[in-house]
Nucleic acid binder design. Structure first.
Length: 266
DNA sequence: AGCCAGGGTCTGC
DNA sequence: GCAGACCATGGC
C-alpha cells in the first residue's frame, strides 16, 4: 500500500514521540509494529508512506484512520509556530501526528505507563501481549482484548513485571467487561464527562484519562500532564497553555514533551 | 549506587 | 482541598 501525504509528516517522529509503545525501527529506517490486530512494516520515502502488512489482508482504511491521513496538519503547524517555545519544539521534531489508536489498548498501556519509563513500558506491553494476545503471525502477538485480559489473575499480571499496576489493569478489564465503562460510548460525550467515566477505573487519574482521549480518540484539546510537561508548563506557560493553540493543546503538549525529554538540557 | 520514570491512591492536616 | 508518603521495577 502506498499513501501520499499533503503536509509535513514524519513517521519516525510520530512513532517515537512517546504516544505509542509497539513500534521499532530497523537498521534501514523502516518501522515494524503492531496496531490493533495488524502487524506491519512501514517505510517513509519523502511524502509517501509504504505499508506492508503480514498475517492479514491489507486494509488501507485502517492506516488512513490510524495516521489521520485525511487531515491537514498545516493549520496546526502555523498555530504552534506563534509561540516561540512551541516553534522551537516543532522544529526540533517536526511532522508529529496524533495517532488514533485503539482506546482499550491505549487505556491499559497508559495505566502501565504510570511512574514508569518508556523502555520498561514497552517490555511490559510486549510480555502482556505474548501472555494473552492473539498471534498475528509467528511470535507476533496483538494486544489482548478485554475478554482475553480478564482471564489473567493478579499473579499473572505481576509476572510480566507490571508491579503495583497489576490491580489497576485488572480493575480496568473488569469495569470494561462489565460495561460499567463503555469505551465506545465516550465518543458522544464531552471531554469532561468522558474523563469522569474513565476515572471510575482504579488507577486512572486525569493524566491517564487524558492520554486515552488524546491518543485513542483524537481529542486534541486534551493535554496530558506528566512530569516533563509539569516542568515545562511551570517554566514556559505558568498561566496555562497560550490562547493561540486553543483546541490543539494536546498537539502542543506532544511537541513540548518530546522536545524537553529528548534535549534534556534543562 | 542511587535517582528517575508519560501517576494515582491514601492518609493526615 | 492540599501536601507528602508510598507503591514495584529496571533503565541509566
Amino acid at each position: 500500500m502506498k499513501f501520499d501525504i499533503v503536509d509535513d509528516f514524519s513517521l519516525k517522529n510520530t512513532l517515537e514521540c512517546g504516544q505509542c509503545f509497539r513500534w521499532n525501527e530497523d537498521s534501514e529506517g523502516s518501522f515494524w509494529g503492531i496496531a490493533g490486530e495488524r502487524y506491519a512494516k512501514i517505510t517513509q520515502v519523502d511524502k509517501a508512506l509504504f505499508v506492508e502488512e503480514f498475517g492479514k489482508e491489507s486494509n488501507p482504511s485502517f492506516w488512513q484512520k490510524y495516521f489521520s491521513l485525511d487531515e491537514d496538519y498545516r493549520i496546526i503547524e502555523s498555530k504552534l509556530k506563534k509561540s516561540s517555545i512551541l516553534k522551537a519544539a516543532y522544529e526540533f521534531s517536526s511532522g508529529i501526528r496524533i495517532l488514533k489508536q485503539d482506546p482499550w489498548e491505549t487505556l491499559i498501556s497508559f495505566i502501565i505507563s504510570q511512574n514508569n519509563n518508556i523502555k520498561r513500558i514497552k517490555g511490559i506491553i510486549n510480555r502482556l501481549s505474548e501472555l494473552a494476545g492473539t498471534e498475528i503471525c509467528d511470535s507476533v502477538y496483538a494486544f489482548p482484548r478485554p475478554d482475553q485480559l480478564i482471564k489473567l489473575g493478579i499473579e499473572d499480571l505481576k509476572s510480566i513485571g507490571s508491579g503495583f499496576r497489576a490491580r489497576y489493569i485488572s480493575s480496568a478489564a473488569k469495569l470494561v467487561t462489565e460495561g460499567v465503562v463503555d469505551l465506545q460510548s465516550l465518543d458522544s460525550m464531552s471531554d469532561e464527562t468522558a474523563l469522569s467515566v474513565l476515572m471510575k477505573i482504579d488507577g486512572v487519574g486525569p493524566k491517564v484519562g487524558a492520554c486515552v482521549l488524546l491518543y485513542g480518540m483524537g481529542r486534541k484539546a486534551q493535554a496530558p500532564v506528566d512530569v516533563w510537561i509539569k516542568r515545562g508548563l511551570l517554566r514556559y506557560f505558568p498561566n496555562g497553555w497560550p490562547a493561540e493553540i486553543k483546541g490543539i493543546e494536546g498537539v502542543a503538549q506532544q511537541y513540548l514533551y518530546n522536545y524537553l525529554r529528548m534535549s534534556k538540557n534543562s
